[in-house]
Amino acid sequence: MPQSDKALLTRLNEHGVEFVIIGGVCGVLHGVPLVTFDLDVCCPFSPGNLRRIEAAVKDLHPYHRLTPGKLPLEFSDNLVARLKNLYLQTDLGKLDCLSEVKGIGDYHDVFNSSELHNTSHGKFHMLSLDALIAAKEAVGRARDLTAVKLLRAIKERKEGS
C-alpha cells in the first residue's frame, strides 16, 4: 500500500480541514532524517471538521484500520459525537487524526504551538520544534526518544546559526 503524505495533505487542505501536522512527518519537516509510515495530524473533532475529513478521503476507500473488521469510514451523528481519534487506511496511505497531543493538549493548544509553512501545494500548520520535542518526550517510547535526540540537535544548530 503506497503512502503519499503530500497527496493526503493536499486533499485535507483542498477540503478545508482544520489540522496541524504532528508526529514523524512533522519531524521530517523540521529536518529529522527518519522514515515514517503514516501521517499524523491533530484536528478539532467538531462535526463540521469530521465531515470535511470524510469528504477529503471518501473516494480513497477509507476504513478504520485498527478495527478487527476494517470498518469502513461512515459517520453517523452518534459516532461523530463520540469520536476522539481516527486511525484510517486509505488508498493514499495511513492517516491518523487525533483530537489531543500528549504533552501539548487539545487542538486549541496544539494550534497555538504550531507554525505556518507555505509550500507549493498549500499552507500547512505544523507543530513547532519545541512543541514536537515536548510531545515526543511526553509519549516517551524508545522511537520517540530517539527522534528527540535529533530534534534537540536540530534545535541547537538552529539557535546557534
Binding site: D5, V25, H30, G31, T119, H121
Partner: peptide
C-alpha cells in the same frame, strides 16, 4: 526547505 524535506522523505 520543509517541502524539499517532505519530497526527500517520500
Amino acid at each position: 526547505t520543509p517541502e524539499q524535506r517532505l519530497e526527500e522523505h517520500q
